[in-house]
Design a protein around this nucleic acid. Structure first.
Lengths: 379, 379
DNA sequence: CTGTTAGCGCTTTCAC
DNA sequence: GTGAAAGCGCTAACAG
């Protein structure tokens, strides 16, 4: 009567016995069939099938000091953009042996550090983290992680290892320039709680207006204050992009700057709220007021009027991050430390003040810029 | 010169040596401090700190034949409802030792089975799966999983272990009854691709109309056909709920039933599309046409006019699923195999044909029904 | 409350 | 190409 603690399920040793080979041969046949002769491979796969053998991944991870877990850290689960990134990541994983473990940092650096530490206990195969503003401790953990690390959704000239994203500054600047070209002059910036990427967008907006000579610190400051306002009262940063908040923030902006004739919204959900507010007030869009958003989610095209936005390639970012990770795990060289996936300026009716496009028509422009850090789109 | 394969990081043995105790005592102190005397606990925690010791979770999982991973299977990552469920799950996990591993089944039973098999290789601490329509093989895996299994977002009188959700049939029936009470008679059902929960909603809609004597198989059939239509062309089931599709489907419905005076939409995103279509056509909502959605996402309240919807408690479902899991892991008894979290009928301007409420006013009604399987809300 | 011993199931190392 | 032996780092099962 042995006192084994097993749950009775077959182990690699059972398979080995049944196939009349050594355990290590089974192990090899399972991981890389080319390492084993045809004859044995046959016997082994038969034994595996007959026994219903399923490898224990915890044992594998312990023995090889490396698991199949890819840790993914996102700042939010409810924001659609990260859902899209995650979808790209899952699509990139496909049916490989890799598994995803997602951590939700809630835009909290301490929480991010905690999750990072937790993830590292699993000896992850790789890490994908959002943004570049890790804490010093977090940065250190990433650097000593002993696995590929991909940062996403932003650009930096000093990535931990590799970064895939786009320039929020340039994207916002390009959209603001479009608003100016469309004939708007008193353009506000509508935003709730600001994270580091939002700040990049704000700076791009300000730069475009400044260069055109329409920069009004009052409007810009107002927008900044509104960010603070957003944190007052019942709002918290997890709700910082509801349409209801877009309505409220637009009202607040108008109170401060009654002559405002357009808003560039920090995200699409706020833009949708702005549109609803205009509907409710009987303000004509785009004639009396222009609205532009950021990300180009599904509903922007379907809105009435259709809403202009900056299209960002979230799915691609997630997908490419995994592909890069897999390449590195396969030992392929990867010298492209910074990958700019660019963005598109999608011009729709909501900013078509002069009636250049057809009523519901969509005019798209790909923002093509030199493939340098901070550029719009890579060649 | 030993030939250890370690990566040089301190192990539990190192901590034990430094603290002058046995390894198992360190193990105990780390997992449940109450098992160890104060004196030793102090020494150990000091040693842990000085060494920067971090437990290897793979080793722990192997030795205890049980990991800290909670496997979660959702059918979609882009649908907001599952993002909310996930948020509830993460909030329920908090800072416990449990970790989430999410699998995306994409409404594909084969993929679900594959992911389930993969998850089981980690000897998960628990499983949370969406819905009740697993494949026979999937069901078998769940039953033999050797860990707590929670099904969510639906009800069933035969859960694998425990189920937390609500009745889609009853929810849809209640909303349809509201539309009838509001004065609408030719009520359509707007839906893209139908999953099993959508079918429950369709049946609830049909039952309400039938009981009121307004059931028109033509309209209902049209809705059914539209589901098929949704799969034609460029649509696939991952896009089955875009506002653009809502617009297209509503147009199609109107073509078939020009006298239709309201739609109950299978989800909020379709309802938003329906509203946009009405805007574009100059159809007055709610006077000429009523619109109701399902789930009550953020934007429903902010729309203009505000859109009525069935509020579902996704966050709570996710949160409570984890709480139940944790309870079971702690060995607490749990005899409530079926938990109905109910739903609310949120009446807003978009269905206020008679002008009963204030313009943008919100009238909410909690659908209270006996706490039986299939009921609206638990006592 | 604490320690010893013997695994957990797989893979690395090194020899054949 | 294959295998035996020796870990990987931790914890269950006793005994004390």
């Amino acid at each position: 009567m042995s006192k084994r603690r097993t749950d009775g399920r077959p182990t690699i040793a059972d398979v080995a016995t049944r196939a009349g080979v050594g355990a290590i041969t089974v192990s090899r046949a399972l991981r890389d069939p080319s390492l084993v002769s045809d004859a044995l491979r046959q016997k082994i796969s038969t034994a595996v099938r007959e026994l219903g053998y399923v490898p224990n991944l915890n044992a594998r991870a312990l023995a090889s000091t490396r698991s199949d877990v890819v840790g993914v850290l996102v700042p939010s689960l409810t924001q659609h953009i990260f859902a899209d990134v995650l979808r790209g990541i899952y699509d990139g994983i496909g049916t490989t042996r890799l598994h995803i473990q997602v951590g939700n940092t809630r835009y909290d650096l301490d929480e991010e550090d905690r999750l990072l530490a937790e993830l590292l206990r699993y000896k992850p195969a790789g890490l994908i983290v959002s943004g570049i503003d890790q804490s010093p401790a977090g940065r250190r953990m990433l650097e000593k992680a002993n696995c590929p690390v991909i940062q996403i959704m932003d650009l930096s000239d000093d990535p931990v290892n590799k970064i895939i994203g786009f320039s929020h500054h340039n994207a916002a600047k390009a959209m603001t320039q479009h608003l100016i070209e469309a004939g708007y002059r008193r353009i506000g910036f509508l935003s709730g709680w600001m994270n580091s990427r939002s700040k990049g967008r704000l700076s791009g907006y300000a730069e475009a207006l400044d260069e055109a000579g329409f920069f009004d610190p009052a409007l810009t400051n107002a927008a900044g204050d509104l960010g603070a306002l957003a944190l007052r009262g019942s709002w918290d940063k997890h709700q910082y992009s509801t349409p209801a908040m877009g309505r409220e923030l637009l009202s607040e902006l108008w109170r401060r700057a009654p002559d405002m004739d357009a808003v560039f919204c920090n995200n699409d959900v706020l833009a949708l709220g702005a549109l609803f507010e205009c509907h409710a007030r009987g303000v004509s869009v785009p004639r009396d007021f222009g609205i532009a958003g950021f990300n180009d989610e599904d509903f922007m095209e379907a809105a009435s009027p259709a809403l202009s936005s900056v299209r960002t390639h979230r799915w691609k970012v997630g997908h490419d991050a995994v592909v890069a990770l897999r390449r590195q795990l396969d030992g392929e060289p990867d010298d492209e430390r910074v990958v700019d996936v660019g963005f598109d300026i999608v011009k729709r009716a909501s900013t078509d003040r002069r009636g250049l496009g057809a009523g519901e028509g969509v005019v798209e422009l790909v923002a093509s810029q030199p493939a340098a850090i901070g550029s719009g789109r890579m060649a």
